[in-house]
Design a protein around this nucleic acid. Structure first.
Lengths: 223, 223
DNA sequence: CTGCTATCATACCAACCGGTATGGATACTA
DNA sequence: TAGTATCCATACCGGTTGGTATGATAGCAG
């Protein structure tokens, strides 16, 4: 949208120009600041003044790049959602060939990265907190993050009939949901200060569940 | 709920006195209104004026019962958390004797009630959304709601060694977490409009996982 | 009837909100 | 050098916020 011609031939002239020299463009400055402030405080508790201060920019500059507070919020959440995930899900196709044990380990490790990323935790918190006022954003999040991961795990279970899994989508949900809920109550709700449950224990229990009983499933008692 | 001493000897004197006759106390009126408004809008987006209007009460009356906006919020969230749960977990001890299939069904049904209760969904949303600004409230929620349910399921698995469950707490988390995460992305984030995953499918998959492979678990390959 | 307490209605406060206007400084373009 | 576009600083706008003050009205206990 905004011009990308980089400022190549300029050197720092005045103290003001110095600060204006390195950052890519004002828009990027604003976006970076908005991400920080919105993720920290949520939508309503974030003031445009604070975003402007954080960005080292005057308020009018923000409004020359974004129409609204709402549009700014929407823009940064969309960008954040899509960026964070496209980076995480691009090379996961070969995972299909892994053994179940290793596959679950890989899934667990992916979640480990998310659970220890403060920015992702904040995004999740804001997403849930504002999901009623910004349902379209929540939909983007579900599509980009949740369904994508679910589909991947579903596909894996579909291609591994030796696991005797009847409902691959439900199983994919159980796997992913175990980690998501772990993140929710341990990290976001601060439960790990009250009782720690290590991700590794959940991972191991899942592996035992899925791999350990494969042979016996489906043989006995149709509920 | 509202007052039982009937207003016997008085007839409607003024229009104001009429409205003051039946409700228990002003405080209950305020709390009820605050619950509604706070759960709908979150902390920052809730104005004391709106709470007062909703309660049919003047703003100063609120401040004669509660010191702060913050204290009012804290009070209603605490009350809501404790009330909602004490009601749900009082008679669950005999569940220990049920068969695994039936136990999981019962757990699933308990979650069904929560997932279809709009007030509980809102409470969860607000809880997550405000968990950074009100960490003590989040702790209360974890202790009262999450750990309680986890402990119950953990105890169940501990008393059922025939299931061959190595880590009962991790297993309890997987069960509960599957339902919590289902609620999160289906109901709260609105994902059910994009893809429906019925609670029954998750329940069935869990039962198959836990009961179906009990015999084979622990026999082979110590990872 | 006399206080006392609780609530009423209204008005007010300083602070902040999202958003705009003005007018000067800076930089690149030509 | 003149022009154009961006961003700066500041100040302003109407509206809303959390919270308070005042003074009237009602119910109740003595």
């Amino acid at each position: 949208m905004t011009g990308e011609l980089p400022t190549d031939s300029d050197s720092a002239k005045s103290a003001v120009a110095d600060r204006r020299a390195h950052p890519r463009s004002k828009r990027d400055q604003i976006v970076a600041a908005a991400i920080q402030v919105f993720l920290e405080n949520g939508y309503k508790a974030t003031s445009m003044n604070r975003v402007a201060d954080q960005a080292g920019v005057i308020k009018a500059t923000i409004y020359s790049h974004f129409k609204d507070k709402e549009q700014l919020f929407t823009a940064i959440i969309e960008e954040l959602t899509i960026k964070k995930i496209d980076l995480n899900y691009e090379d996961l196709e070969p995972l299909m060939l892994l053994s179940p044990d290793v596959f679950i380990d890989q899934v667990s490790n992916k979640f480990s990265v998310l659970m220890d990323d403060p920015e992702y935790l904040k995004l999740f918190r804001v997403m849930v907190g504002e999901s009623e006022r910004f349902p379209e954003l929540a939909s983007i999040y579900v599509k980009t993050v949740i369904l994508r991961g679910m589909d991947l795990a579903t596909a894996y279970f579909d291609r591994h009939p030796e696991l005797n899994i009847e409902d691959s989508a439900a199983m994919a949900h159980i796997c992913a949901g175990s980690f998501v809920s772990l993140m929710t109550w341990q990290q976001i709700l601060g439960g790990k200060k009250l009782r720690t449950l290590e991700r590794e224990r959940v991972t191991k229990a899942l592996k035992t569940l899925i791999c350990g009983g494969a042979k016996n499933r489906g043989k006995e008692h149709l509920s």
